[in-house]
Design a protein around this nucleic acid. Structure first.
Lengths: 210, 210
DNA sequence: TAGGTTAAGTTAACACTGTTAATTTAAATT
DNA sequence: AATTTAAATTAACAGTGTTAACTTAACCTA
């Protein structure tokens, strides 16, 4: 009833309160299943209050995803300090897969749901900031490995390498998240599939004149 | 107003009429955006009539997907007659990718939306029927290539090979379908990514003592 | 052939959705 | 002390999937 929030800082607090409530519900029950009224109830506001901070549900989802991409970047950051470029590349990939599989609903929101394309201009994430931009981290890791001569001589474009390896790992994660319970398919153990995909990338990419 | 349909055959006709109408709309506008009323209007019935043939929207979607899996199997069938096992394997993969990219919304319904797990007992598709079951086709193609000694000696499990290669190709397709328009990423040409993924699989898998 | 039964199809209605408009009300400003 | 401002609310709308109640034409039996 009364206006409780006044200063710009307090508004930011409420904004992130909404985002956190939405994330918890989205992650537990899926984006489509969660209603604006439920998000609002969880923080003790009415549904329409959310519209004072986000123009619609899509924008709220995007804010959640933005924060989660940040979380992914943070999860991957620890691997960036590994000194050996090849080892760094491998660990980066394994951490990526691990993040996806331990946070399947976060991962689904980020990379598996059809939402409007992400515009860097509207995002809260600073593009190319190595602390925040996970995609930029990927490009860096692969580029560094490439400069260090890790890859076979045939490969000239580290960005192409990065995008292809990403696709390979994404396929593993996405298929598992969506279809692990599908009785049609007699899935081999996830670990075996991960290992095999890594081996495949290694054998195909790595220059092994040690 | 009057009961128009009587015989079992006529009921089947109406059933597939509903499925076809739903598919057209799902493919054009996405599953979530399409309403039961719109599906019904397209075939000149009232919305509640659909519930005489499908228990709910989820079951209708599943019927559409079933029919589309059949379509995928049919699209892949032509490659099964290629005599050389390696060439058959390669062509199978390329046809799979091509199907996914020319029918992105079909593909999304089949492999990228979170629906209840598929139970072979409830499906209209005959599991292990090489004319209908695309997954079984995949396993066959890889197994045959494996028996023919196409793969490197280290690989002992053709099913594991098949699932990993599937994941690699799926990652390519899924990432493209969902994120091709994402301004965050400076995508390399799709053809280059496909080619590179194929090369990667080849280099990693194929026994090249010709 | 008359009359009741069946079931395909309908309209009406329910609980719920995202969202907008109109309204309240406490603080900030004058 | 009166006025403005804006945070928050309730009321309301158009639309959703779905269920219940109702028609009504064809079929089955007497």
């Amino acid at each position: 009833m009364p206006p409780k929030v006044r200063t710009e800082a307090e508004k930011q607090v409420l904004r992130t309160l909404i985002i956190d409530a939405a994330r918890e519900l989205f992650v537990s029950y899926g984006v489509e299943a969660v209603t604006m009224r439920e998000v609002a109830k969880r923080i003790g506001y009415s549904a329409t209050s959310i519209y004072l901070y986000f123009s619609d549900k899509e924008q709220l989802l995007r804010a959640v995803v933005d924060a989660d991409v940040l979380k992914l970047a943070s999860a991957l950051k620890s691997t960036l300090s590994i000194s050996d470029p090849l080892e760094r590349f491998v660990q980066f990939g394994q951490h990526y897969v691990q993040f996806a599989l331990t946070n399947p609903n976060h991962y689904r929101m980020m990379f598996m749901t059809a939402h409007l394309p992400c515009d860097p201009a509207l995002s809260s994430i600073e593009q190319h900031n190595p602390e925040q931009d996970a995609y930029h981290q990927l490009i860096s890791v692969v580029s560094n490995a490439w400069q260090a001569g890790v890859f076979k001589p045939g490969f000239k474009d580290p960005v192409l390498i990065a995008q292809t390896v990403w696709a390979a790992m994404h396929g593993l994660c996405a298929l598992h998240i969506n279809m692990a319970e599908d009785a049609w398919i007699n899935w081999r153990p996830l670990e075996a599939r991960i290992q095999m995909m890594l081996d495949l990338c290694m054998q195909g990419l790595i220059n092994d004149n040690k």
